[in-house]
Design a protein around this nucleic acid. Structure first.
Lengths: 221, 221
DNA sequence: AGGCTAATGTCAGCGTCTGACAATTGACAA
DNA sequence: TTGTCAATTGTCAGACGCTGACATTAGCCT
């Protein structure tokens, strides 16, 4: 067995050391077990000991991989968000700010699988999304994470437009509005009974088209 | 002393029983002590035992007044938010939605004192605001509370305009944008070094005026 | 004055999270 | 191959947030 692994190492230059691979496997296993437990029996009714036991590591080890119980719940979200941000950065420079944001988020939802499927099944990721939206303590963290992402988006938008974030309020405001729309869409999707990613994508697109009209002085009836 | 209090009761019909007054005093004392400790030495570095000890009650009693450590940190915010919502409900019916929100929030910031000064000194309230914005766990809860308030605002706006929240996305979107602006203003105020309420009020007003321009397709430079 | 009930204190215990130290196990060179 | 070094893990003790159960105190009302 030792020989086999040594050979495997030779034939796969990128995977680096054995130690590192073991760590990745432990981490993935913790995420999968945690999300499975969270979605099956609820976040609060799942203890860290349960998660650790499922992967056969000590509770102390769990806390060496994740700073707290919340962090493991957002592991797949983290990947998805990175994916989205990368999509924004790849947008053509001549696109208007809101159009770029819109394109990036729709792209990201469309190719969510590629970003997370090595860690968890996409379907588990979506079920976890619902758990987050319906668990008060997780929802709070979720909103803070969104706020942090908005900070990064603001800077990217300002960069694209060649503006200074500290003097021009428009990048901050546009992103704040955009973030609001994303949240509204996510919340409505959670409340509905359609599970698919496409549905969430459609809800998002639909609402983004209503940003302008919602600001009008007098609303048509 | 017993006689004096009995007389005092007679001359003040509303204050109700002695028991109730004692409860109110204990609650106020807990809030004041907690906020003082939080602002002086930080939220995380303050234990519930410290707060309870400062008021000379048991830790168990603290948790009979507040569901958790976070709740006491938002006691004065709670009052302020109620005040703001009441201001919105008192707005003339012919005002446009965004104008009503704008008027309500500026009014509320203008008369913040009256809403909270029996509980804590307004200056302590403002210092606590900064602590909330700069403490990750509190910021998360703050954002969730804002989201809950937005839900109420959405329904009130829809009511004013005679719309159905479930079919028309505009109330949700307007409020989401409005909430974003409030957050941006609050954050900028926290980052600055001006302590006064007026400053926060001005920042808020300024940003509300930029909602329209930020949505424009092409931004002027 | 005395009984009723609400408020408080005490105690035990669960769950999250951390520091400290010892044991294990990959990595790498002699 | 073997031995050393460093990274990973386990174990243990303990702080802190929070809760249920039960005893005690203190306002209320006849």
């Amino acid at each position: 067995m030792t020989t086999d692994e040594a050979v495997a190492d030779m034939t796969t230059p990128p995977p680096a050391g054995l130690r590192e691979r073991k760590k990745q496997r432990t981490r993935s296993a913790l995420v999968r077990s945690a999300l499975e437990l969270f979605t099956r029996q609820g976040y609060e009714r799942t203890t860290v000991d349960e998660i650790a036991e499922a992967v056969e590591v000590s509770q102390r080890t769990f806390f060496r991989y994740f700073a707290n119980k919340e962090e493991v719940a957002f592991a797949s979200q983290e990947s998805a968000e990175c994916h989205f941000f990368a999509a924004l950065c790849g947008r053509p420079a001549d696109e208007a700010p809101l159009a770029a944001l819109r394109g990036a988020v729709l792209d990201a939802w469309g190719s969510i699988g590629e970003a997370i499927e090595q860690m968890v099944p996409p379907e588990l990721h979506m079920r976890m999304y619902r758990v987050i939206e319906s668990t008060p303590s997780l929802l709070a963290v979720h909103l803070r994470r969104i706020a942090e992402m908005e900070e990064r988006l603001t800077r990217e938008i300002a960069r694209r437009e060649g503006l200074d974030v500290d003097t021009d309020p428009r990048p901050r405001l546009l992103v704040a509005m955009f973030g609001g729309v994303i949240r509204v869409a996510g919340k409505l999707w959670t409340e509905g009974d359609e599970d698919s990613v496409v549905t969430l994508r459609d809800i998002t697109a639909f609402h983004l088209d209503y940003v302008g009209p919602a600001l009008a002085e007098k609303w048509d009836k």
